[in-house]
Write a protein that binds this DNA or RNA. Sequence first.
DNA 1: CATAGGGGTTCCAGTCACGGGAAGGTCAAG
DNA 2: CTTGACCTTCCCGTGACTGGAACCCCTATG
Lengths: 128, 128
Amino acid sequence: MNISQVAARTGLPAKTIRYYEDIGLVTPDRRPNGYRDFTQNDAHKLGFLGRARALGFSIDDCRNLLTLWEDKSRASADVRSIAREHLDEIDAKIAGLTAMRHTLAELVQGCAGDNRPDCPILKGLEGS
Amino acid sequence: MNISQVAARTGLPAKTIRYYEDIGLVTPDRRPNGYRDFTQNDAHKLGFLGRARALGFSIDDCRNLLTLWEDKSRASADVRSIAREHLDEIDAKIAGLTAMRHTLAELVQGCAGDNRPDCPILKGLEGS
DNA sequence: CATAGGGGTTCCAGTCACGGGAAGGTCAAG
DNA sequence: CTTGACCTTCCCGTGACTGGAACCCCTATG
């Protein structure tokens, strides 16, 4: 399979796929003319990567997950622990954003939004 | 004021303050020896920047907010519209993360977390 | 057979918002 | 005079790509 075909199948840009090869996440064969030749398994791995990245896993996480995924004898507890850590991170991010949202919403609420130069949002940002 | 003092007052690292000067957000004076000399107003601006950044405003947003902040005749509606857009962005991020969390939590829940190699998390990531 | 196009390849540079660290000038204290 | 804290600039690295240039390969058409 050429790179454009695997790109179409996985939804990943060709550039990204080449980058994933650069950092050793996939190792496609090469044809005599130098073109990359992806197997079904490569495409499958790249699809896996795409979904894991979409779920917010870092490249390092993905590398670990890929290893576990290919290791038939791995313990599912290992996978679970990576996923759990990631879940905690997501929760922390959500909490941070929610706090941010709260503060900002208060500022916006207090703002008349008219043509007067008096703006509580800027006042709020001015600090104590 | 030297950079370390304004850093202490604003909570921003000196490196960050120099960077903000690089990209034109502040323009401190210079002493004969080359040291930066920050006015009270500079410190105030940097504090403003720190709080706005902490609320997740982008550097570009901050640049706009700073302009509005320094413009005595600005309309509060302008500020409000920037803040509202930012609020929408925050909401979108929260929604995305929440969806992610949901998917991931389902995967984790389905995982026994024992030593068997059968792992629903990896299965879920394998895709259709 | 020449050529046009749509693939593919490599490599280099840029992104964002800094952080780390080197090499060297400056200043106040002991 | 020396020490040590502080300041300066400069350059490289981060993460995960993205854009572009320059060039090769393959097929189809006049």
